[in-house]
Simulated assay, not measured.
Amino acid sequence: MCGGLSHCKIALVFAVIMDLLGGSALLIGVFAPLEIQGRDFGDLLVYTGALFVVTSLAGWVLWYSGNIEGLSSKKELGHIGSAVDRLARNLSRKIRSYRTHH
């Protein structure tokens, strides 16, 4: 049933709950008259709902990045992988030596 969700189910649940709470708070803050003793609390719910929705983005990013498939292993890359490794190592050494000399 949840085969397509595969990894990072906690991040998915976090994101969905934060979206539900945020959406509910936003809708209640906009459409419900929330005046208590002459003070309007609708703005508070709107801002709180927006904060929940923005926080849910972290959960969505974690869930999405946890489900990225297909990073190639060194065996699959063969000689290209080792060439890229050498290039990255050389570039890193040059940057490091530049920083120590300046």
Rank of each mutant, 00 (worst) to 15 (best):
V84N: 02
A50D: 07
L91V: 06
D40H: 07
R93I: 13
F41S: 00
G49H: 02
L12P: 10
G70D: 10
L5G: 11
Y64C: 12
N90P: 00
G70F: 07
E69C: 11
L20A: 15
G38T: 04
I95T: 10
L20T: 05
G78W: 03
R86M: 10
G70Q: 04
T48Y: 01
V84D: 05
L44N: 06
F52Q: 00
A15W: 11
Y47I: 10
K75L: 13
Y47P: 05
L21K: 02
S6T: 12
L62R: 13
L57K: 09
I28F: 05
Q37K: 13
K75H: 15
V13G: 03
C2P: 05
R86K: 10
L12R: 04
V84L: 08
S82P: 00
G42K: 04
L34V: 09
G38D: 02
S72T: 04
A15M: 15
N90V: 02
R93H: 09
E69R: 14
V84A: 10
G70M: 04
D85A: 04
G66T: 14
S82C: 02
R99M: 09
A32T: 08
F31K: 07
W63K: 13
S24A: 15
G29F: 00
A32C: 09
A15R: 08
V54C: 08
D19N: 08
K74H: 11
H79P: 02
W63C: 12
I10M: 09
A32N: 01
F52G: 00
H79T: 00
D43R: 02
G49W: 00
H79M: 02
I28S: 07
Q37T: 04
L45N: 06
L5A: 10
G23F: 04
I80D: 09
R96E: 14
R39F: 15
L62F: 12
V16P: 01
L26A: 05
S6P: 01
L51N: 03
A58C: 06
T55D: 03
G3Q: 08
I68V: 15
V30F: 13
A15E: 12
E69Y: 08
V54R: 01
M1E: 12
G70K: 01
R99K: 14
G42P: 15
L21Q: 06
G38H: 05
S56M: 11
G4D: 10
L27W: 08
N67T: 03
G66D: 05
G49A: 11
A88Q: 04
V13I: 13
T48D: 00
I80L: 09
M18Y: 12
